[in-house]
Amino acid sequence: MPVIMVAGTDNMKIAVLSGKGGTGKTLVAVNLAAVSRQATYIDCDVEEANGHLFFKPEWLKKEDIAVKVPQVNEDLCDGCRKCVNFCKFNALVYIKDKLQIFEEICHSCGGCLLVCPFKALKEKDKVIGVIQKGVSDNVIIYTGLLNPGEPSGVPIINKLLSKENVPENQLTIIDCPPGSACVVMESIKDADYCILVAEPTLFGVHNLNMVYQLVKLFNKPFGVLLNKCLPEDNPAEKFCRENRIRILSRIPFDNNLGTLNSNGEIVVKKEKKYQQLFSSLLDTVVKEVQYETTANP
């Protein structure tokens, strides 16, 4: 099935987020990228990246991502404990005349090295995960994978969204992790527009409110996409009306959509009505961003 071309999407970064998992972030992000003329899709949900399951890309590149953790030279350490007392994450202890380092607690700030009067600490690389680059038709795919047990995916997301991966003159779709914590902030910080995906339940409203507060705090232009819409009243829609939030589009609760998606299919390539829905959503967002750029340059 031919894909509708949406023009004027150059140099635009659209983030897709939600307060909880399973609302449809990946569905939206994958299909927006697939329906565009050309896009880079970046999966920042590094704890459970799954966008690649839809694109089934040909992998081109794989790169280890490392952070710095301290290492002690016991001959130089005199037990002054300046580093132990400095560390806000309590990654260091001094027990039985020996410095002990908890690498998985360390947040790689490098402060312990700075406060050590004896230069007894130096940094070493610790691999925390990988990023992979692949291609599938009109979409370049970047995926980050954090190793289990690591405290933070932020360094991987930071690398995923670095200048070398985000091309200047192309549409970039950022598939965010769920929630509103540091990893989400890192994912949206350079976005031109945020799409908030919401479910039609009270729980969905609670989660929508979390990301709504976040995008307001970051002063990002945003709109809501109501997913899994039923004929009955939609609490998420009510929330949007009460807070004068722009509703971008509505995706119906549709068994067929669920089945296609569960089978790892890209729905815009399978169903004409979803091809139209996502083309029109992309159009709407592009216009919003263009308006924003004109109104608030």
Partner: peptide
Amino acid sequence: TGGAGIKAAQ
């Protein structure tokens, strides 16, 4: 913020 058990043990 984190690592309370480690510091308490110290």
